[in-house]
């Protein structure tokens, strides 16, 4: 006796797969973004940027169902950005590895990562906020400023666009915003500006 499969059975499997895949599950975003070089004139300054292994391998968990592996990408964009903004800059994993005397030392860290999806914000966009702290100190490691830097990226939701891809795209835009934000504001940080001006005055004497 031959058993005939109901024609609607394949449809049933498609629905079951859609239900299981669509309603929940982990969103895991791995970024392998490459970033362009900044079109900016670097200023005369010597700086060391300390990006710890923890920062360079940072994995954000904005909620229990989502992980964003942004460590390598955020290191990459910060290298490009500070390389564009500062004349002489070195990137090290720890303070002990700084060999030459520096004008400033910068330690970036991630304070918070937030993600909003269309079901939460009631908009047709995926949004990503990353709040960084730049701990800036002088060459002797005396604190100058703790500067908080929020960056933001969003991407339009498209029909059938996968959540991972949409969040990944919004995260890449947020990381590109680091270059934009620092290009506009880095040399406008009041404490840093005063410190650089003071050093110039001292050098001129």
């Amino acid at each position: 006796m031959s058993k005939q499969m109901s024609p609607s059975r394949p449809l049933c499997w498609v629905f079951c797969a859609l239900l299981l895949g669509g309603c929940g599950g982990m969103t895991r975003v791995q970024l392998e973004s490459s970033f362009p070089t900044l079109l900016i004139e670097p200023r005369e300054l010597r700086a060391a940027v300390i990006m710890s292994p923890e920062f360079s391998q940072y994995v954000a968990t904005p909620n229990k169902n989502m992980t964003l592996e942004i460590g390598a990408s955020q290191r990459s964009i910060l290298e490009k950005t500070f390389g564009g903004l500062i004349d002489e800059v070195v990137f090290v994993d720890a303070a002990e590895l700084i060999e030459q005397p520096q004008d400033i030392i910068i330690r970036p860290s991630v304070v918070e990562v937030q993600v909003a999806v269309p079901s939460e914000n009631y908009l047709n966009v995926y949004e990503v906020w990353i709040k960084y702290n730049l701990a800036i100190s002088d060459g002797d490691d005396n604190p100058i400023e703790n500067w908080f830097m929020p960056v933001y990226g969003k991407t339009a939701s498209a029909f059938m666009l996968q959540k991972d891809a949409a969040v990944g795209s919004a995260t890449t835009i947020a990381l590109r915003d680091i270059g934009a934000k620092l290009s506009l504001d880095f040399y406008r940080i009041p404490a840093l500006q005063s410190y650089i001006d003071e050093r110039r005055r001292e050098a001129a004497r």
Binding site: Y152, D177, A180
Partner: peptide, 29 residues
Amino acid sequence: MDALYPWLEPRTAPKGLLRMRRLMQEPQV
């Protein structure tokens, strides 16, 4: 956008012609 990075990002893109003119005064741009 990559060639002019970071001057055409959402935060920095010129919204008016006055800002565009000022941006074009940057020799690299």
